[in-house]
Every structure is written in structure tokens, then in C-alpha cells.
Nucleic acid binder design. Structure first.
Lengths: 364, 364
DNA sequence: TTTAACTGGTTAAACGATTAAGCATATAGT
DNA sequence: ACTATATGCTTAATCGTTTAACCAGTTAAA
């Protein structure tokens, strides 16, 4: 009986010892403290360059830390400090040059300040976007930079972010819809520029395949298109203004629709390069001459616009600048003690990049 | 004097109270425990569906958690459990369909198991890649899934991951170089397939613009090319085998180089769609007929290969499958108590997608 | 009857860092 | 000589969860 208990006790001690020996624990500040015979507090302060620690001690701590190959446990400090140094980024997808470039620039700016980004894609799905928000909040990100999915109309999920007191910065998609910071280009003006350009090329009947009206940027492009037509006394024909999901596939569909009209347009401005690509495929397949029979303008200046035949005129959205500004905006918040967000827009002027698909002058 | 001390004391008490009142603390399991008058341990177990807690208590806990809008603090549990439920992903860049698709599939599989991914891009730079590894380790990721940058030759940084006992899974780039799991396609066979296809089309002088030889996948493609030529008794001309960085720009350059040869090739197989695109631009600019005068085959099956004129024959790398397998491989490790990695290859068979740029039969 | 096993919890330590508060000692100011 | 301030640390609490160890009560088995 007694022997049994003793045996049990010994076994337990032993297994504990074995655990300690076996598992190569990562070095912690405690290890450093033990070596130098100082407190963990002193080590922590030394590593954080606190003024209350002597230069001598700091040097010693740094040296020992190096020798023991000390790596700070980010989770512990994050828990204690109440911030994770992670920033969540939500984009509809990464495989477009625009979003990829925005992300890259966000990363560049934030990395320098010790932040890392957790990236998620919504695939233009509202449900996925909500999931993304949940997982980011769960990961305890210190802020979220997002561009909304096409599908997103209901904004309660974004309100959830705001209610948590986490800074939220939107770019490209989402302007005005929530009372938060926004960075984007001037879509209204861009549309005007495009129509103006097409008019100059001699186009008289300009169609627009636009995005969903509930998305403000697409609505702005539509408004710009309409106002520009008015300005130039061009016919504002209902059948020339088409709403689209703006995928390649839908671009093909909507272009086919335009071609079936009794009086075809002589130019079409499409609110996305991807849809424009689909439209271009249809035009090429049907041997319609671009730009002579039909001028074509896209939006976004995706790299492929300059690769296809004919190259597609498009609008440069300044993805680099957008990414940088979004990151900087977030960093602004980290410096404020209390986060109080309000609508704070940064609107960049876009740039029209004229290529073969609308350059009638050059062809003739 | 005494009054001063009392005042100081009161001030301190007050400021503490103010803090407690003012800052809307997030609800913790402690709050739930207080409401139900049970221990935090019981709450924790209830939320984690521990068998030692009665269904009744569980229900009550869940209800209160919902009412108080409880969100678990991931940092705290991560710290305690010693795992972050984050997986790091390193890719050369996200704005290629291949990598973007791999990531998407990794995410899909891992999300289901409660993992989130932290994504980083190396931009094909060795230095950036090392930084990425450091930040991922710092973030305490539970594993890393990576595809190496073109520049990367020195692998000590990757050894760092292994030495930390964190599972490392490589895909596409990195096969064999470290003693870890790898998922990719059969590059050697793919090259053979391509050459075989070109031979069938009647090509007699096939050039290859390949990647850097130190990257195993590109070396495999080169070996496959060489062996296939031998097999078909075709001339293995040194000037027809060119090493390239495989960017669009370099594709243009290397194609120009090929065109300046005394006896031009009648087909060129390029180890990347991007470089193939550059090559295609040059051929189009110089009015060289594709595929009649020069057949063209790329690699990767990027979406644009089917969009350009003529469309480019390419190789489908099964990005979805690669992403899924990589994620599953990681999940395997999470189930093992001790992580002991060894070379464990999953090699998928690639698929040749024949398009106009090499379809001579169709043209003639 | 004794032992074992199950149920449904509780207690308290732990994860690894940060930080408010305290405490000597030294230096300077008046 | 007395107070104030600076220096350079230490102590101990804290962040929010998880979990090993324990305990009381009930049931089942030998």
C-alpha cells in the first residue's frame, strides 16, 4: 500500500523531470535573468531600452540574449500590452494587379513600424467577407484595412469592427458608406476623362458597361458617364447603359448584348479591365475592328491591358499610393490614445492611359 | 504633510476607479463565471465542450456568453496552449494566378480547421524572404508553407525554421533542397510532354528559355527538355538553351536573342508564361507568324495565356491541388505529438493545354 | 465491504512578457 | 542639514485562458 504510493510519487516526480529535460524550451527572459542574476523586469526593460536601466546592464542583457538565441514571445507581450501588432487586410481577391500592389505597399509601410499583416480574400462573396472579419477580430488584429466585395450591401458586420474600437480603413470599394476613412480615386472625374477622350476620337454613341449601382465607386463612374454625355450633347440611351458583375464572362455577355442592338454604339467604356477583356474577346471573335468600328476603354490599368491585341486603354488607379496612404492612415490611429473615427477621405486623381483600343487618330 | 499623503492616496484610488469605469473592458470568461457563480475553469471547459461538464452548465455558459457578446481572447489561449493557430505562407508574389490560387486553397482547407494564414511576399528577393521568415517566426506561427524566391540559394534561414521545430512545407520551388515535405508537379515529364507535342507538330529545331539552373524545378525542366531532344534525335544546340529570370522583360530580351541567331529555331518552349508573353510580344512586333514560323509554349497556364493573340499553349500546374495538399500536409503534423520532418514528396502530373501558339496542324 | 470508476465540478498554477509601485543609494539644491 | 530628484534596480500583479491536480458525491463491481 505505502509502497504503491511512494512508487506513484516517484513516478510523477520522474516524469516531470523527464519533461523538463526532454523538451527543449525556448529561451525566455527568465533564462536571461537567471544567467545575469537580475530580475526578469530588468531584462524586459533592458531589451526595451528603458532609461531606468544602466547601459552596462543593457549591454550584458543583449549579449546573453544573443548567446542564448533569445526570441521574444510575441503572444505574451501582445497579451500583456493589449495589442497584437497585426493588421488585417481584406480584399476581394489577390490575383489582380491592383489589389496585389495595394497589399504590397501596405505591407512595406507597416513592416517598417513593426506591424505584420494578415491577409484574407473575400472572393467577392459577402459571406466569406463576414467570415474574414470574424477571423480577423478573433486574431486580435489592431486594425483592419479593407476593400469590400461586390456583393456586400449590408454593413452591420463592418459596424462590428467599429464597435470594437478597432480602426477601420477602406479603400477603393466602400467610400462614404460607413463613417470611416477612405482612400480611393476620383471615379466621377475618371469617367468624365474617358468620355471626353472618346469624344475627341470622334465617337458619337458611347456605351457604358458599369458595375452594380449600389457600390458607390461604380455609381460614381455611372454618374460621371451620364454627366459627361450631357455635357457633350450626346444621346443618353438607356440601352447603352448596362449593369454588370464585371467579370470576364459577364463582359463577354454584355458585349454580345450591345452588339445585338439595332444601332450599335461606336465606343464602349467598361468599368473594369477584366470585363473589358471579355468584351475584347467577343469583338475579336466577331471580327469587329477595334478601335475603328468600336473603341474600347477599360478601368484599372491591369498589366494585361498592355499585353492583349489590341492593347486596351485604361485608367491607372495608383495602387501604390492607395496602399501607402491606407497604411499611413492606420499608423495615425496607433498614435492616438482614443480612437474616434470619422469620415476622412483621400481622393487621388486617376490617370488615363491611352492605348490602341481607343486610339482612332493613330490608326487613321 | 499628512494631508498631502492622504490626498495622494485618494487620488490614486480615484484614478483606478475611473479607469475601471471608463474603459469598456471586453467580456472575459471571468465575467461569465461571475454571472453563473461558477469557476472560470468550468466556463473554459464548457466552451471547449469538455466531457466533464454537464450539458446543463454548458448550455447556460453558451447562453451567457452570447448575451455578453463574449469573444475569446485568442492571444491568451495561444499563449497558454503554446500554439497560435496561425500558419505563415511565403510566396514570391501574389499577383500571379498560380500563387493566388494556391493560397486560396490553402486558406480554404486551413480555415475549416480553425487556422488562419498570415501571408507574405518575397518579391523574388532573398533578403525579403529572410525578413518574412523572421516576422513569421516572431508572430509565433504554428507552421510555414513556402515557395522560394528565385534568388534564394542559401538555405540557412530555412534551417532556422526546422530548428525551431515548426513544420515547414515547400511547394513549387524548393524540392529536395531541404529535407522537408514538398508538393509540386513533375517538371521533368512536363518538359518531355511539351517537346513531344512540338515534335508532333513538325518542329525540328526547338529552343528552350529556361529558369535558373540552381532552382531545381527549372533544372528539371531543362533536363526534361534535353532528354526529350535526345530521344527524338533532335540537335541539342547550346545556343538554343538559354537561362533567364523569366520575367516579361527578360522574355523579350531572350526572344530577341534567339531571333538574331543564324539559324533560327522553329519552336521555343519557355519555362514561364510571363516570359512567354514577352516573347510573344516580340514575335508579334516583328510580324513573325505564330505558330507557322515559330511555335510557342509557355508554362503555368496563367489565365492570360488564353486571352492573348494568339493564345499560348501552356502547362496546367494544378494550383488548387497543390494548395490543398500543402494545407493537408501541415494538418498532418498538427496531429503528431513530436514533429519529425523528412523528405516527403507529392508529385502531381501536369497537363498540357494546347492553344493556338503551337497548334500548327489546325492552322495548316 | 471494499475498491474502483464516473460525474461535475473547484483551485491554483502556468504561459511569457510588461509595468505600476516600491526601495535603496547617490547627488544636487537650498 | 534637510529635502528633492535621479539612478538602477526588485517585487509582485497583471493580461485571459488552459489545465493538472484535487475533491466530494454517486454508482458499479468484486
Amino acid at each position: 500500500m505505502i509502497i504503491k504510493f511512494i512508487a506513484l510519487y516517484l513516478f510523477k516526480r520522474l516524469s516531470k523531470d523527464i519533461k523538463k529535460l526532454n523538451i527543449k524550451r525556448k529561451t525566455t527572459i527568465k533564462d536571461i535573468a537567471n544567467v545575469l542574476n537580475i530580475s526578469t523586469a530588468a531584462v524586459s526593460k533592458a531589451l526595451n531600452d528603458d532609461s531606468r536601466i544602466s547601459e552596462k546592464t543593457k549591454q550584458a542583457v543583449r549579449q546573453v540574449a544573443k548567446n542564448l538565441n533569445y526570441q521574444p514571445n510575441h503572444l505574451a507581450s501582445a497579451l500583456r500590452k493589449g495589442k497584437s501588432n497585426l493588421v488585417g487586410v481584406i480584399v476581394p481577391r489577390t490575383n489582380s494587379h491592383f489589389f496585389s500592389s495595394v497589399i504590397q505597399n501596405i505591407e512595406e509601410v507597416l513592416n517598417k513600424e513593426g506591424y505584420n499583416i494578415v491577409m484574407t480574400q473575400s472572393n467577392e462573396s459577402y459571406k466569406k467577407e463576414c467570415d474574414n472579419i470574424d477571423t480577423l477580430l478573433f486574431t486580435q488584429v489592431d486594425g483592419i484595412i479593407a476593400s469590400m466585395a461586390n456583393e456586400t450591401i449590408d454593413l452591420t458586420y463592418y459596424e462590428k469592427i467599429k464597435s470594437k474600437g478597432i480602426p477601420l480603413i477602406l479603400f477603393d470599394r466602400g467610400e462614404n458608406d460607413l463613417n470611416v476613412d477612405y482612400i480611393g480615386i476620383n471615379d466621377y472625374d475618371s469617367s468624365q476623362m474617358i468620355v471626353e477622350h472618346l469624344v475627341k476620337q470622334g465617337c458619337k454613341r458611347i456605351a457604358h458597361i458599369g458595375g452594380y449601382r449600389h457600390t458607390r465607386i461604380f455609381n460614381n463612374r455611372i454618374r460621371g458617364y451620364i454627366d459627361a454625355l450631357k455635357k457633350h450633347n450626346l444621346p443618353l440611351d438607356n440601352e447603352l447603359l448596362i449593369e454588370s458583375s464585371l467579370t470576364i464572362e459577364d463582359g463577354r455577355k454584355k458585349m454580345t448584348q450591345l452588339l445585338s442592338l439595332e444601332t450599335r454604339p461606336d465606343a464602349v467604356y467598361i468599368a473594369s479591365d477584366y470585363a473589358a477583356l471579355g468584351a475584347l474577346q467577343i469583338l475579336n471573335e466577331q471580327n469587329i475592328k477595334i478601335p475603328q468600328d468600336m473603341a474600347l476603354v477599360g478601368f484599372g490599368n491591369e498589366p494585361f491591358t498592355s499585353m492583349v491585341t489590341p492593347s486596351i486603354t485604361s485608367v491607372n488607379q495608383h495602387s501604390e499610393e492607395i496602399g501607402k496612404q491606407a497604411a499611413l492612415k492606420f499608423l495615425d490611429y496607433t498614435k492616438e490614445p482614443v480612437i474616434k473615427q470619422s469620415l476622412n477621405k483621400i481622393i487621388l486623381e486617376a490617370e488615363l492611359v491611352v492605348r490602341d483600343s481607343s486610339n482612332i487618330e493613330k490608326v487613321e
